[in-house]
Design a binder for these strands. Structure first.
Lengths: 197, 197, 197, 197
DNA sequence: AATGAATGAGTTTTCATTCAT
DNA sequence: GATGAATGAAAACTCATTCAT
């Protein structure tokens, strides 16, 4: 009631720090790659002392997983918005439009989920952690639902084709440093969605 | 009768070693990822003393680039074989079949070129090394030639769509550890190629 | 009565460690030479774990520069003391006396500033780092001030002659392992200072 | 008589290689410093295969000593020429003029003998190799002879003063990257020689 | 003697993780 | 919880020296 200005409630501060770390990890890990990013990098980006990170995340792997979850959560926010569109085909086309909207980031750093997935996969030698897989599941399920609602055949195959196309175009766009690949491939996907019956 | 087993020809050893190192690098870097693979790992896989690696490759980056080139060279070998088929459409379908044939490796480690490209991209901070881009160029050009020979519109767009689809399905197949994704997507691509006019 | 021996004050430890490292570097680099001294040598001399050195100095070069600065700072302390003498000629003669006082060290290891300067110069290939130059600037300026105050002609030329003579006699004394060279040359410089008008 | 073009006499070739290595070592070690120069550097500069170096010099130390000797031998050549001047004072003044003539090299790399001496001294830890000392002995002796012939008092002290002045001015000139220091100090030394009686 | 290649010990540097306060 | 500092196990890279022809 009285000390809110000088001493913000601990409960909130801690949660805020965790969130800041997660957001910083999501951004920095995407930009620099998992293996080339140090805990200190993330701590600095989140404006948190290095040693303090370990009160929120026991290991680097936990931070990586949190970052992956953060990206998934961004996708959830996006699909939640798209769900407000009445037509499933329009929802999918809007998803493609969102991808194209992120073309500059994709050309520079690739798809956050995709590039993280590639690296995370190598980190879990032998073991089937599959954190990378989980990251895609949700989006695949959402896309499949849309296709199903559209009444087209093989909805889960189409979902894989669509998400796969996005991963592929992001990867090529990134490797060739050419955002226009996203634009052109996005247009092609949109046309494709229109032809499905 | 011959002493080839006991006394391997010294003359060829040097060239052979470089090749052994390149091949080992291509394999191990693909399996473990660039950043998690040490020079010692590659040396061991090639049965070469660690220090000796540097006689053939001045830096780890050079080894990575050699590995990338090795993968590209594998693709060249493949497309050279496909070129013997009379019909460009058949060549492309055979390419897809080859991809599907590698589904188990893709599901376990992803596409060699693609996963290396993602990591190589993060290694060249800010700089436009584009080694990753060069790795794709040749295959894109080859695919474009086939589409052009088929007389379809937008051959380079189709080339990007095709290679992108492969990258995407490899990535998803890897993240979900599911080789069947390769099979199903391969079938879809084959059908797609058949519909092009 | 006090636990100072068992539990050294942590608060001061950090600052103290950096100073200990700098002092150790100054000594060891002088005695062994820059290139033949390892970070581990310095760490051991400072009683600091090797890895911890990098918390205070990002590279070996930074340690070398700190050592050079440390030697310069010793000279500053010396000239500050000499400044308390009323007569500039006496100050210069006292400086020479101080040099002669360090004859055994000079005969064994050379002038700290001079020998470090020689090696530092070779470390900065092509680049104009001039850390070595900066190391001499202060002493040259101080000597020049004294000559100026004495009212003699060409004070900066004389400063160079004086400091140069010290460097030369240290180098010869070291190469010939003969401290007496310092004594005799010191006497000659003193006589020379007395003749200046 | 017949194969001179295709197969030069072995006896000469070997001697030529040794000489080339010595000359290359003298130059490269001066420019880069002893510790930063590799055997391979010297071999390359002499256009000799790396492995072959060891047929002429058993260790790096031997090469360093040969380089030092080479520099001393240059000095001998110089003093032999100066000996043809009738007046010892003129000989000494001509020596100073020669030093000034090498001012650009001195400003860039320091005095060959002096900088090598500093580094060689650090290489013989504890042991009294004194190769550095021997390098100066000859020049000191020659200068002392000149002073003696001039009939001035304390000829060996003056020799040390003269050679020391050269070492000092080279070192400062190098540290400050200023060849003019050589010019000015040279002029001062010349005047000083003229005043001696 | 000649030579490219091999060797292995050593050096700088990095960093996830832990610790003391 | 918070924080700067500590730690130690790698990892990349270097190079004098040796070796097999």
């Amino acid at each position: 009631m009285t000390d809110s200005a000088d001493a913000p409630p601990r409960r909130q501060k801690a949660a805020g720090k965790r969130q800041r770390l997660t957001a910083a990890a999501a951004r920095v890990l995407h930009e620099q790659g998992v293996e080339r990013t140090t805990i200190a990098d993330i701590a600095r980006a989140a404006d948190v002392p290095t040693g303090n990170v370990y009160y929120y995340f026991k290991t680097k792997d936990e931070l990586v997983e949190a970052a992956l979850t953060e990206h998934v959560s961004h996708l959830k926010t996006l699909t939640d918005q798209l769900d407000q569109l009445p037509d499933p085909r329009e929802r999918l086309k809007a998803l493609v439009a969102a991808w194209v909207g992120g073309r500059d980031t994709a050309a520079r750093y690739g798809c956050p989920t995709g590039t993280l997935a590639v690296e995370v996969d190598k980190r879990t030698e032998g073991g089937l952690d599959l954190a990378a897989g989980r990251a895609f599941r949700q989006l695949l399920d959402w896309a499949e639902s849309q296709f199903r609602e559209m009444g087209v055949a093989d909805p889960d195959g189409l979902a894989i084709a669509l998400i796969g196309a996005y991963q592929g175009m992001s990867l090529l766009s990134n490797a060739l440093r050419d955002p226009e690949i996203m634009t052109r491939e996005g247009a092609r996907l949109t046309r494709w969605l229109d032809t499905l019956t």
